[in-house]
Design a protein around this nucleic acid. Structure first.
Lengths: 195, 195
DNA sequence: CGGCCAAGTCAACGACTGTTTACTTGGCCC
DNA sequence: GGGCCAAGTAAACAGTCGTTGACTTGGCCG
């Protein structure tokens, strides 16, 4: 409290940095829940407690806001296991952990992708991010023959599972019996990783 | 030519049945290419050479048109191989064959699903169709333990591959090297099917 | 305390959406 | 060949969308 402007918290009601962060947080949540197209700038701004005009001011456009949301995602590679032999179980454990206690801010890059692929402008951004930040690092980590193809197969499998379970909510994966699907998924992923 | 109205083709310019079929054909193509939301009734009608009002008249609503499009899809089970031991290679062969010569009318149920899952009204229809017409028949065909889960895994894998290859066009699956991905996909699917 | 600039709001724009109503026109039957 | 009903069109409705300009207001500095 050496250089604070006052001994009591200022509680500035007009703080561009705080407001910007609030918009970003609302955007992450709504892009995840609704996808790029259905998430409207007015709804996002309302959730952040401001007006839609501020989005254009701070992020240039809705697409600019989307880019900024994407920039803080796709660090799947950071959650990789250390031991290559435990790739499958580690990945499944990561999924179930994220499922038991979903991220508090409602942000989920995988769902965001799946619900935004119908938008052409979002598509190019998503492809670039996913390739560069997830698939290529994963391919390097996997190593071996056809590493790129195998990394793609891993990501494809995870996406397919997410579509059927979380988006479509197919009856093939009842929420109560996630363990059964996961116990079959783990060796599948391990088999792809092993070569 | 016993009961034809004339020896020469009548070329009726106003034929409700033909017009309806034309709308349906345009809708199949555009729902596949753009997804449920981005395919507009005006564009669909224009491609069929009519006005958007006819869609409301013939199909009740845009959603009614979508239902009708869905009713003629999802017969994957009909393309299943006879021998269970050739499940993987047969499925991969089916995929590559469809890829080499795509259906002339531009209709592809898998792409239609992937590009329509962001729409809530389309979602319920898609889940029902996919579960009843594809996953459940496949589970019955597979048989054995956890047949439902395994059928779901097969469909999930196919969807994930389709997303990365056809929708996102990820660099992990370059179009020229489809054979490499397919040769890895076949044993993967076979492994799920075998139990 | 007064001024001033950033922070934020308000209202409107033009384009697009699916749907409905009133209207015109084409083709078959008598 | 004339009438009549179905087939199809045109136009408008009530929304929503992202974006922009002019306007107001809050909070810090001198």
């Amino acid at each position: 409290m050496t250089s604070s402007r006052s001994s009591r918290a200022p509680v500035r009601r007009r703080d561009a940095i705080v407001t910007r962060a609030g918009i970003l947080r609302a955007a992450r949540r709504q892009f995840t829940e609704l996808g790029y197209e259905r998430a409207g700038v007015r709804q996002i701004a309302a959730e952040a407690g401001v007006t839609a005009a501020l989005i254009s001011r701070y992020f240039g456009s809705k697409e600019g806001l989307f880019v900024e949301v994407l920039s803080g995602a796709f660090q799947l590679a950071g959650a990789l296991p250390l031991a290559r032999g435990e790739f499958g179980v580690a990945l499944v454990r990561y999924i179930t952990a994220h499922e038991r206690r979903p991220p508090a801010d409602g942000f989920d890059p995988l769902l965001l992708i799946l619900r935004s692929i119908s938008s052409p402008s979002a598509l190019a951004l998503l492809r670039d991010r996913l390739d560069r930040r997830t698939i290529q690092p994963l391919a390097r980590w996997l190593g071996g023959k056809d590493r790129g193809t195998r990394a793609g197969l891993v990501v494809a499998t995870l996406m397919g599972i997410a579509i059927l379970r979380k988006v479509l909510r197919s009856s093939a994966f009842p929420p109560g019996e996630a363990a059964r699907a996961m116990s079959r998924l783990a060796p599948l992923l391990q088999g792809i990783a092993d070569h």
